[in-house]
Design a protein around this nucleic acid. Structure first.
Length: 105
DNA sequence: TGAATAATGGCCT
DNA sequence: AGGCCATTATTCA
C-alpha cells in the first residue's frame, strides 16, 4: 500500500494536515520546499501550521519530511531542533537526493 | 554572520 | 480561550 493511500485513509488527522502530507509526497525527489511555500501550496497562510503538521505527523518515516526546509535554506526541525544519530542519518539521505548543495558542507 | 524579537495562523488541551 | 510551534522577516551587535 502506498503512503498516499494511508494518508487519505487516515481520519486521525485534519484535512489540513492531510494536505500537508499529500503535498509533501507530491514534492519530487531531490527537490526541497520551504514551510512557507508548502503552506502556500495547500492554501495555508502560516508556515508554523505546516511545521506543526509535520511535527505531529503520524507517518514520520513514511512522509519525506526531510525535504521540507526553512526559508533561508537551512535544515530546520529534524536537524535543528531535535538531536540524535537518526537525525544525521536523514541529513545523509538529503545529500543522497541532491539536497544540501553547499550549505551544510 | 548570528542571536533575539515580533507577528501570523492553525492545532491541542 | 490560552498556549504552543520543525517559521519568517526585521533589527541589533
Amino acid at each position: 500500500m502506498n503512503i498516499e493511500q494511508i494518508v487519505r485513509d487516515s481520519r486521525e488527522i485534519t484535512e489540513f494536515q492531510r494536505k500537508v502530507y499529500l503535498e509533501l509526497l507530491n514534492v519530487p525527489k531531490g527537490q526541497t520546499i520551504t514551510y512557507g511555500q508548502l503552506a502556500k501550496r495547500i492554501g495555508c497562510k502560516s508556515a508554523q501550521a505546516v511545521g506543526q503538521a509535520l511535527r505531529r505527523n503520524p507517518f514520520a518515516p513514511a512522509v519525506p519530511c526531510h525535504r521540507v526546509i526553512a526559508a533561508n535554506g537551512s535544515l530546520c526541525g529534524f536537524n535543528g531542533h531535535r538531536e540524535g544519530e537518526e537525525i544525521e542519518r536523514k541529513r545523509q539521505l538529503l545529500k543522497s537526493e541532491g539536497v544540501i548543495p553547499l550549505s551544510s558542507l
